[in-house]
Simulated assay, not measured.
Amino acid sequence: MDRALRDDFFACLRFYSRLPVPAPRGHEMPDFRTAVRALPLAGAVIGACAAAALLAARALGLPPFLAAALAVGALVLVTGALHEDGLADLADGFGGGATREEKLEIMRDSRLGSYGAIALTLSLMLRVGALSALAERSVLQAAAALVFTAALSRTAGLLPIMMLAPARGDGAGHAALRPFEQALRTAALLVLATALPPLAAGAPLGGALLAIAGAAGAAYAMTKLAERQIGGLTGDVLGAAQQAAEIAALLALAAR
């Protein structure tokens, strides 16, 4: 790994997780114009942490559902609930605000409302359920799926940056710049590379392709929803897009 790619990798890990990694050059916020190329690698490392929790739980004799719950819990712990927080804020804002201004104001509020609580509950239930179904078939497939979907969803979750202008003049959405085309091509190749572990573990090729399509479609749907609701991009939109992409990818892999 060359030095520039390594710096981008560390920058993404530092921003997207709470793992102890060397400080990136410059700022906490990655420069998405170049750092996006390393995002699938960072996502794969994050997913590997959850996969380790899943494998350990099954090795201790825990049933698939409990092992899946612990794995998703590990995923939330490693990331500091970064994307879950965005999903909850977006649900509260879009569900509780009558105007664009009200929606944006509610999304800034750190308190959790009814819509946010429901969105979080559904997100956790769907991910644990899908992962449990995978683990019942093959724990190795389930572990590989965690690595794959963590890389895939974080990359697909950047789709709003490509399609929307910032809804505010500050915040994470404003700071995230449009990625360079070359960086996106590199990221796409790395995402495809992370599909190899589930395929090697026996997952069908059609399931992996459906997961990619589902993640992209879910992120696109969240992007269009944000455009209609607030007319642009915020950091919460990015978090919600990642969550939608991850759920769609896991459901696709779990479908028989």
Rank of each mutant, 00 (worst) to 15 (best):
R6P: 02
Y115W: 14
A218Y: 08
P20K: 08
D89Y: 07
A244V: 03
H27W: 08
G207I: 00
L177T: 14
A193V: 14
D2F: 07
F9M: 05
A183K: 12
L177I: 14
L251W: 11
R111T: 14
L70E: 05
S138L: 06
L66M: 08
V36Y: 07
P160W: 08
L177Y: 02
A195E: 13
R14Y: 02
A203D: 00
P22I: 01
S153C: 09
M29I: 12
D7V: 01
A81S: 15
A156H: 08
D89H: 13
E227N: 04
L253T: 05
A56C: 11
L146M: 11
H83L: 00
A211H: 06
A226M: 09
L152N: 05
L66P: 11
P63D: 12
L39C: 03
G47L: 05
S153Y: 08
F94R: 01
A195F: 09
A68Y: 00
G171M: 12
L126Q: 14
R37N: 08
A145S: 15
R228W: 09
A240F: 01
G217V: 00
G206M: 03
A216L: 15
V147Y: 06
L253Y: 06
R6D: 13
A156Q: 08
A57R: 00
R178K: 14
L66E: 06
T223V: 08
G113K: 11
Q242T: 12
F10M: 15
G207R: 14
G214P: 06
L126E: 12
I247N: 11
A142W: 02
A91R: 10
D109G: 13
A249H: 04
L233F: 02
G26V: 13
G239S: 10
M162H: 10
R3F: 06
L131S: 03
G171W: 10
A91V: 11
L192D: 08
D8E: 15
R127A: 00
A44G: 15
G113I: 07
A245L: 06
A172S: 13
R178C: 09
A254Q: 10
A56K: 09
G214L: 06
A151S: 15
E84I: 09
R185Y: 13
A216K: 09
L209I: 05
V191A: 09
L251R: 04
R108Q: 15
T99D: 07
P63E: 10
M162T: 14
T149S: 00
H83K: 03
A135L: 07
A71N: 07
L87H: 09
A216W: 13
A51K: 07
R3S: 13
P204V: 03
L189D: 07
C12D: 13
A176K: 09
Q242L: 08
V21E: 05
R6K: 14
